[in-house]
Simulated scan of single mutants.
Amino acid sequence: MRADARKNYDHILAVARDVVAEQGVNASMRDIARRAGVGLATLLRHFPTREAFFEALVCTKLDALTQKADELEMSARPDEALLSWFREWIAFAQGQKGVVAMMAAAHTNPDSALYASCAAVHSAGARLLARAQGEGRARADMNGDDLFGLMSALGWLVDLPSFAPRADHLTHIVASAILANPSSNDVEKAVY
């Protein structure tokens, strides 16, 4: 991709993140193009379908979450790394309404454009969990599938308007359930 085309592509995705955060996955492609200062034809040249557009948007964030897990794995205490990454994932799910349903559908579908990024996030979470378990800081009776399931369930729940005001509290409860013998201070530091 030429440098100017790449710059346009990145700019469209940056604007789209804001629009989708406001309007959810049903945001208008025309509105995204208008707010990005490009024509609809330019948007469609980069992203020929609505699905391709949202997959690219979600993939960039999932890839960033995978990279964040790698960084935390090297720099933080195992329980802090796990909970910090968990919090990042929840913030992503809250900021992109409808994304959890997209990920859940892609998680087991190797034909989906999101599959590889979802698998990488799942694997990153499993690694962080195993590391915390190895230090005795996370429950031993759960695995990466359980963690991914809890994250997805929480992400879906806080996406509902009736539960959104309780998102921080629910995140705190789930984070506490993941840790082995958590102190309230540990969970609060990592989650808030």
Rank of each mutant, 00 (worst) to 15 (best):
M74W: 10
D63I: 06
M29H: 06
F53C: 00
R45G: 10
E55N: 08
F54G: 07
P48A: 08
H46E: 12
E51Q: 11
S84N: 15
L40G: 09
P48H: 00
L57F: 00
E73Q: 12
E55M: 01
L65E: 06
A52E: 13
S75V: 14
A76D: 15
E73R: 13
E80R: 14
F53E: 01
Q67F: 05
D31K: 15
V58D: 11
L83Y: 06
E71I: 12
L43Y: 07
L83N: 00
L57P: 00
T60W: 00
A69D: 03
F53G: 02
L43H: 07
A69K: 06
A36S: 15
E73W: 14
M29D: 08
L44I: 05
L72T: 11
D79R: 13
A41E: 14
M29F: 03
L83H: 04
S75W: 07
M29Q: 10
E80W: 02
K61T: 12
F47K: 01
E73L: 04
M29W: 04
L72E: 09
L82F: 05
V58A: 09
A81Y: 08
D79I: 13
A41N: 14
T66G: 14
L57W: 02
A69R: 01
R35M: 11
L83G: 01
D31E: 15
R30K: 14
L43N: 05
R35D: 02
L83R: 06
D79H: 04
R77L: 09
F86W: 03
A41F: 11
L57N: 04
A81K: 05
L83S: 03
R35E: 12
P48T: 01
E80H: 09
K68Y: 07
R77S: 12
R45T: 13
C59Y: 02
R77Q: 15
M29T: 04
L72H: 12
